[in-house]
Design a protein around this nucleic acid. Structure first.
Length: 283
DNA sequence: AAGCCATGCAACCGCGTGTAG
DNA sequence: GCTACACGCGGTTGCATGGCT
């Protein structure tokens, strides 16, 4: 099946946007709001394709964009998030207010990669450059395994790990995940060991050291009907009867502190491939 | 001053996903 | 279940700019 073009190429401008085009786009979105990108160009009197308008608005014209250099804190946050999420630029951008996925992607490729190389860290794996390669598809069922499968083969291994926005804040849990993880901990550990001496000497716990990241991400059981004949309705019912979302924080043993999760009431078999994200403590 | 090269970034392209009919 | 459509994402390209020779 052929794919219809998103616009009539011969009647659209390409390349850099002019000031007039920017103004037209801004004025139109101010008046009518975002959305319906396909019909927007015509309505706004622009000889551009909808995709181009969307990109221009999101990456450049949006009023809430933060312009200017990245701060050191943003650098570190991007590195940490990338070690966890891989090249999921939109997810990373979601954690950096005022920054766009495109901007972060460019910044990563032009600055941070070099920075990590200079630290002796492989920017793709976040492991030391001279470290022996690890077989991430082996018996490890960790979060990081999924992450790096995503890096290396982003389309074929999506079922390894799925992040879904359900109910599980991971404020301090995920950093612990890759602190404990066999494959992902190198960069994070080396940094906390080498540069956070002041913190460790002051008696801060590991958890306290990494509270800077608030991913607010959730990990849920992968949606199996993508790979099997199970119907969505049936699957949803299974999910409901099986358990509420499982709090990774509790499962990892941090539930001594305040946690708003719903207690897990159902025993879940570790042979269930939907439980992969338990890796670090289940090993 | 001119040419070359490296870098940074805006923009494009192709594909995946979700959804409505 | 199939198809078409709209949108969003990640990878890549190409141009503008600055530094160096």
């Amino acid at each position: 099946m052929g794919r219809s073009p998103c616009c009539e190429k011969e009647h659209t401008n390409k390349g850099a946007w002019t000031k007039e085009e920017d103004e037209r786009l801004i004025n139109y979105i101010k008046a009518h709001g975002e959305g319906c990108w396909r019909s927007l160009p015509k309505a706004a009197g622009l000889l551009r394709c909808g995709k181009s308008c969307r990109l221009r608005w999101i990456n450049y014209l949006r009023p809430d964009l933060k312009r200017g250099n990245f701060t050191e804190e943003e650098d570190e946050l991007i590195i940490n998030l990338h070690s966890l999420l891989g090249n999921k630029w939109s997810l990373i951008a979601g954690r950096l207010p005022g920054r766009t996925d495109n901007e972060i992607k460019n910044y990563w490729n032009t600055h941070i990669k070099r920075k990590l190389f200079s630290r002796g860290i492989d920017p793709q794996t976040h492991r030391p450059l001279n470290a022996a390669p690890t077989n991430t598809t082996s018996t490890s069922t960790s979060t990081c395994s999924g992450n790096h499968n995503t890096n290396n083969n982003s389309n074929s291994n999506k079922s390894q790990l799925e992040f879904q926005a359900i109910s599980m804040p991971l404020t301090t849990v995920l950093p612990e995940l890759f602190m404990n993880n066999l494959n992902c901990n190198a960069s994070f550990k080396s940094r906390t060991n080498s540069t956070d001496d002041s913190n460790s000497s002051s008696g801060a716990t590991d958890e306290e050291l990494h509270t800077g990241i608030n991913l607010e991400l959730s990990i849920s059981q992968p949606n199996p009907f993508q790979t099997s004949s199970i119907k969505m309705k049936e699957w949803k019912q299974q999910q409901l009867s099986r358990t509420q979302a499982v709090c990774l924080r509790c499962h990892l043993g941090f539930n001594s502190q305040a946690c708003s999760c719903i207690p897990m009431t159902t025993t879940i078999s570790t042979t269930d491939n939907l439980q992969r994200y338990y890796g670090p403590l289940d090993l």
